Amino acid sequence: MTSLTWPRCRNARDLGGLPISDGGQVRAGALIRSDNLDQLDSHGLAAVQAAGVSRIVDLRSAWECEKYPSPFANDERWLNVPLTDPADPDVGEQDMFEQYRMLIDDYPHRFAAAVTAIGDAPPGCVVVACHAGKDRTGLVIALTLDLLGVPLPAIATDYATAPETTTTNPLPELAPPHPDTILHVLAHLSMRYGGTARYLLQSGATSSQLTALTDRLH
């Protein structure tokens, strides 16, 4: 994975180069994860164009998209696939694994829609983004990488890679990501659903969509 210089975005990186268990690697220039693109300046917007982006999967709620509109909101490449909704129960005081587990268990169709949006995109690079590029993006990327066969330690390392923060806010979602959190999520998927692929198939994804996803990222 390679950190990208997208001015005013602090958490953008290309996931190309991550190892796959079959001996291959995630293809460079195929999948980028990022924080909120509304922060981009003109140089950042030019960098997105230069990356050959064909789809931006914006995981923010409709409320967030209205309050902090994406500069690509009127672009056909932008696709809003909300992973959370303001009407969802407030779980902010739960630890991060429990927050993630409830999302996974309560809203499986949201994850299926987000992951298949990557595989269904037109040819080119896909960007997955939310607000901080850490939690919602971290979950969708972790499921995608697990589906590809990226080893668990590499998934955990990617998840835990984030800009340093000086916040002292006690809320769990504002703490730096810890690799064990995402490993516990993937273990939960394995134990309860039989793995990421079965979870997504049970949640509305088709086998052809999952195949298209793995093919485009190899």
Rank of each mutant, 00 (worst) to 15 (best):
M1I: 03
M1W: 04
T2H: 14
C9A: 15
R10P: 00
R13E: 07
R13T: 08
D14R: 14
G17C: 08
L18Q: 04
L18I: 04
P19M: 12
A30S: 15
I32M: 11
S34P: 10
D35T: 13
Q39I: 00
Q39M: 09
S42H: 10
H43W: 01
V48F: 00
A50D: 14
G52Q: 03
I56C: 01
L59T: 09
A62R: 15
A62T: 13
W63A: 11
P69T: 09
P71T: 11
P71E: 05
F72I: 06
F72A: 06
A73V: 13
A73G: 05
A73T: 08
N74C: 04
E76F: 03
R77H: 04
L79I: 04
L83S: 01
D90L: 10
G92S: 15
G92W: 07
G92M: 12
E93Q: 15
M96N: 06
Y100T: 06
R101H: 12
I104W: 01
I104A: 09
D105Q: 15
Y107E: 06
H109S: 13
R110W: 10
F111I: 06
V115Y: 05
A117G: 08
G119Q: 05
A121E: 01
P122E: 04
A129V: 03
C130N: 05
H131W: 09
H131G: 04
G133Q: 01
K134T: 00
R136K: 11
G138L: 05
L139E: 05
L143E: 09
L145A: 06
G149D: 11
P151F: 12
P151Y: 10
L152H: 01
A154H: 10
D158A: 07
Y159P: 07
Y159N: 11
E164G: 13
T167I: 08
T167Q: 10
T168A: 14
N169L: 14
P170T: 07
H178C: 03
P179D: 02
P179Q: 12
P179R: 10
D180T: 07
L183P: 00
V185R: 08
V185G: 03
L186P: 06
L186I: 13
L186W: 08
H188V: 09
L189T: 07
R192C: 08
R192P: 01
G194M: 12
T196I: 05
S203T: 11
A205E: 12
S208M: 02
A212L: 13
T214I: 06
T214R: 14
D215L: 08
L217A: 11
H218M: 07
